[in-house]
């Protein structure tokens, strides 16, 4: 292993992670500086729910595609969402496995599983690019950051896919590119829409708490 690759796998990743943590901390501090709204009124609804149930339901929403009409009717997009995000977790995880648990990648099924997950996520990334470019609604709501983030992740999936075997037989450039892209990704995330997962717990918590207090969440559905 070259010194540069070693640097890319260790110091660069650690620095990028530290940078991301600092920016995230600043970001959350900024968000929490805003006062949280408060509900004075007594609860409404049938009395079979409450703010706690509301926000738990709201948080769990991500794993309940049946709970929202939008995910029920667009189940294929929901499946894409799941694959894409599992792929992100796998590709990030890979950046820890290679430097700190490389022996795991000597197990063939682990390599295969990671490649299937990350490869599928890459395919979903391509489908998402097509949708974002080809769909008039998606195009209208997309910013350069939306396009760039999607291109970044999709190409990153590609290099992660190739990096899974952790092999330098054909040179170090694949691993090098993967780790430099990962570091860039980690440092770019706090400034982009990719940081949405940071806000997800807050938006869904407050919406769920409010809707639980008002007897709306969990949503009753008679079909």
């Amino acid at each position: 292993m070259s010194e540069l690759l070693h640097f890319a796998e260790h110091q660069l990743q650690e620095g990028a992670l530290l940078f991301m943590a600092v920016v995230y901390t600043l970001r959350l501090t900024w968000l929490l500086r805003f006062k949280a709204g408060k509900e004075r009124q007594a609860a409404t609804g049938l009395g079979d729910t409450n703010p706690r149930k509301g926000f738990l339901y709201s948080w769990a929403n991500v794993a309940m595609p049946w709970a929202m009409e939008s995910t029920r009717k667009k189940l294929f997009i929901y499946v894409q969402f799941v694959i894409f995000h599992v792929g992100v977790v796998a590709a990030i995880g890979l950046s820890f496995v290679i430097p700190y648990g490389a022996h795991l990648l000597e197990i063939p099924w682990v390599v295969l599983a990671l490649q299937i997950i990350i490869g599928a996520a890459g395919l979903v990334g391509i489908m998402r690019i097509v949708r974002r470019v080809g769909d008039v609604y998606m195009r209208a709501i997309s910013s350069p950051d939306d396009f760039f983030s999607l291109f970044l992740l999709t190409s990153w999936f590609g290099f992660a896919f190739l990096a899974v075997p952790n092999s330098t037989a054909n040179g170090e450039w694949i691993l090098m590119t993967y780790f430099f892209m990962t570091a860039f990704f980690l440092m770019y995330v706090p400034f982009s829409k990719i940081s949405h997962y940071l806000y997800y717990p807050f938006t869904r918590y407050y919406l769920g708490k409010t809707m639980g207090h008002r007897g709306v969440f969990p949503i009753r559905r008679i079909s």
Partner: peptide, 21 residues
């Protein structure tokens, strides 16, 4: 601006799932 509104203003990922609703 309060925390709920700021959260809603920052969290949108432009996924387009709301469109048909």
């Amino acid at each position: 601006l309060n925390r709920q509104i700021v959260g809603s203003l920052t969290a949108c990922v432009h996924c387009g799932m709301c469109t048909d609703s």
